[in-house]
Simulated scan of single mutants.
Amino acid sequence: MIRAMWHGLMAAILLTPPSLAAGDYPERPVRLVVPFVAGGSIDRVARLLAERIQAKLGQPVVVDNRTGATGNIGTQAVVAAPPDGHTLLMQTSALAISPWLSRLPFDVEADLVPVTRIARTPYALVVRKSLPVESFEAFVAYAAAHPGKLTCSSYGVGSPPHLALELIKQAASVEIVHAPYRSFSQAVPSLVSGQLDCSIDTPTNVQPQVETGVVRVLGVTAAEPFFLFPSATPMASRYPGTEVEGFQLLFAAKGTPPAIVGRVRAEFARVLRDPEVEKQLRAMGFVPVGDDPRSAAEGFEKDYARFGRLIKERGIRAE
């Protein structure tokens, strides 16, 4: 039922030219809600884009850091806002995971409309330098030969890197212990001491330690090479279906007129094609996307369904 509703809306958006039926939108400043603290990666991306989008829309675009409850407070603010396109949400692909781990005050698929995926990045698998493996294939072979002896960190139970680890464990039939840490920086001393054997985190988080030789990067959680670590194995090319990419997505409230959704997406897509914007996004470790609402919705639905299955199959529960 929900999928049919989303697809019906997507068809309406794609069939309506952005110049039609949007009226005088926007009639006042647009609020871009970021449900995370200022200074983080999603906040920096939002501010980079807001500065340029407001020139396209002819109205100020104000970034509103509405934090709390792991992003739920800001998301709820958009769900409760008038569905007129003047309140938008920048969220991450973790929104496809959180409904499976805790009860939310909103229904992701019923209350929000995907506008576009802003940017994407895979996650990187790194190992301590003393671990006797030099490739992803050797890592899998070592894990198979030493079941339950390797310990790998992520930045939390149910996080995208944790699910990436579970997908690899499932696909390769290996047993690796998961150890949640609050951040990669907190995991580094354990990697140096040998208490941890590996970690999965964002490429920009691990890059300084890779460059100084503290850890080695063996793979990325994608099907294709990633520009920051071009020699790292795309792990999903060895085990299809295990790709996990972090997306930054733009949402509007359910009921937002399709023409307005189309206009917003068109303007964001134009900005994301700007060479300077692409350069700055890549410096943050992201690849710009800017896809249409149907593609964004289908990608989100796919992740929502497969992450839900994985969480149930592996018995993952929030801490």
Rank of each mutant, 00 (worst) to 15 (best):
P132T: 11
T242C: 03
P258V: 00
G290H: 07
A141G: 05
A266V: 10
L272D: 02
G255E: 08
V214A: 05
R66L: 15
V289K: 02
C152A: 14
L281W: 06
E301A: 12
N65E: 11
V115G: 03
I13H: 03
V33E: 02
S130R: 11
G285R: 01
A80W: 07
T16R: 12
S185F: 08
K254D: 08
P203I: 13
P18D: 07
G290S: 09
H178I: 09
R103I: 00
F139A: 02
V177K: 01
E301G: 07
D292C: 00
I200N: 01
S199T: 13
G194H: 10
L48E: 02
K279S: 10
A236G: 04
H146R: 14
F286K: 00
T75A: 07
I73W: 06
R44Q: 14
A297E: 01
L249A: 04
R282Q: 12
R216Y: 03
I311H: 04
R128M: 14
G58C: 11
S295A: 14
S41I: 11
T242M: 03
I311P: 04
L249N: 02
I2W: 01
L32I: 00
V79C: 06
E51A: 00
Q76A: 07
N72I: 10
L165Y: 01
G68M: 09
K129F: 14
T87I: 12
L20K: 14
I260V: 13
G58L: 13
R238W: 12
E134Y: 00
I42D: 03
R3G: 08
P60I: 12
A318D: 11
Q54S: 12
V30P: 03
P293I: 07
G23F: 15
T67P: 04
V45G: 01
F268I: 00
M10E: 03
L101K: 01
I53G: 05
S193G: 06
T67R: 09
D303V: 15
V113F: 03
K254P: 05
G213E: 05
W100I: 11
S190Y: 10
S193H: 07
V133C: 06
G148A: 13
G85Y: 03
V277S: 03
S102K: 15
G39N: 08
L14S: 08
R3M: 12
L112E: 05
Q91L: 13
E301V: 07
